[in-house]
C-alpha cells in the first residue's frame, strides 16, 4: 500500500503533537519512555496445534500456532529437522491490511522472528532441530504460523513473545510406523536461550520502548533487538531512517533490560 496524501498530512500533524508531549517527558497514553504497555501471554490456546500462544501488548494481539509434520531433510543436512516461520497479516487486524499474498511487511516480520529463534535455538550445538531426526530420509518439520489478530503497534515484540511461548508449549508427537501420532506426545523442545525482541522507536532525539501505532507511524527509525536469557544478542532489525552509534548502543542496553522483563511473562 502506498502512502496517501492523507498519510503525509497526518504524519506532520501527529508528529508535532507527540513531540510537544515528549518535551514534557510524557507519552500519549501516559507511559514513561521505557515502559511497555500491559503485556500478557497465554500458552496452549489452540487445541488443534501442538503448541500455541496468544500474546498481547496493549491492544496488539498476536497468535502463534506451532505444528509438526513429516518432512524430507535437506540434502546437505540429512540429520537435521526443518524449522519454518510464516506470518499472516489477517485483514481483520488493521484497516491497512489487505487480503492477498504475503507482502514485504509480513515477510519481514516472519523473517525477523525466525532469525532470533534460529540464531539462538536452531543453529549450533544441541539445537532443537537436531532432535528432529526420525530415520534415514525422514525428519520432523516444525512450522510456526504468526497470526496477527489486532495491530495496534509493535507487532515485532508481540510476535516474538507469542512465538517463544508457542515453542515452549509445543509437544513433540510420537513417530510410529512411518506416521506421526499427535495424540501421544513424547516430549518438549530443548530450548536454552529464550530470545525475546524489544523494539525501540527513535522520534527526533527520543528513544521510546514499545512504540504505539501512532508512534511507529511518525518514528524516524525503529530498531528491534532480540536478547537471550543467556545475555547475548540474537538478532537485530532496523527499519527506515538513521540512528547514531550511541543511540544504537543505548538501545541495546535498553533491550537487554526489557528482554529480561518480558521473559518473565513466558518463563
Amino acid at each position: 500500500m502506498g502512502e496517501s496524501a492523507k498519510d503525509v498530512v497526518m504524519h506532520d500533524i501527529k508528529k508535532g503533537v507527540l513531540l510537544d508531549l515528549f518535551k514534557k517527558g510524557e507519552r500519549m497514553d501516559g507511559r514513561g519512555f521505557e515502559d511497555y504497555r500491559p503485556v500478557s501471554v497465554k500458552k496452549g490456546v489452540i487445541a488443534t496445534a501442538e503448541g500455541s500462544a496468544l500474546a498481547k501488548i496493549g491492544k496488539t494481539q498476536i497468535l502463534v500456532g506451532a505444528k509438526f509434520d513429516l518432512a524430507t531433510p535437506f540434502a546437505d543436512r540429512p540429520k537435521e529437522g526443518v524449522f519454518s516461520v510464516n506470518c499472516e497479516f489477517l485483514p481483520l487486524a488493521s484497516p491497512t491490511f489487505e487480503p492477498g499474498p504475503p507482502n514485504e511487511n509480513s515477510i519481514q516480520l516472519a523473517r525477523v522472528t525466525d532469525r532470533a529463534i534460529r540464531s539462538a535455538e536452531v543453529e549450533g550445538d544441541n539445537s532443537i532441530t537436531s532432535t528432529f531426526f526420525l530415520e534415514e530420509g525422514k525428519v520432523l518439520a516444525l512450522y510456526l504460523d504468526i497470526y496477527v489478530l489486532d495491530h495496534s503497534g509493535n507487532m515485532t515484540d508481540a510476535a516474538s513473545l507469542a512465538a517463544m511461548a508457542a515453542l515452549m508449549s509445543a509437544k513433540i508427537p510420537k513417530y510410529a510406523d512411518g506416521k506421526l501420532v499427535r495424540t501421544e506426545p513424547i516430549g518438549v523442545l530443548p530450548l536454552k536461550h529464550f530470545p525475546i525482541a524489544t523494539t525501540i522507536a527513535k522520534i527526533d532525539k527520543y528513544l521510546l520502548v514499545d512504540p504505539s501505532k501512532e508512534e511507529s507511524f511518525v518514528a524516524d527509525s525503529t530498531l528491534s533487538i532480540a536478547t537471550t536469557q543467556t545475555g547475548l544478542l540474537a538478532s537485530m532489525q532496523k527499519t527506515k531512517g538513521a540512528m547514531s552509534r550511541d543511540e544504537v548502543l543505548q538501545a541495546v542496553d535498553i533491550a537487554f533490560k526489557k528482554g529480561d522483563e518480558l521473559r518473565k511473562y513466558i518463563l
Binding site: I46, T48, L63, G65, D145
Partner: peptide, 10 residues
C-alpha cells in the same frame, strides 16, 4: 482457516 486449525497436518 488457519494452518494450525486442524488436528491433522499443517
Amino acid at each position: 482457516m488457519s494452518p494450525f486449525a486442524s488436528k491433522e497436518e499443517h
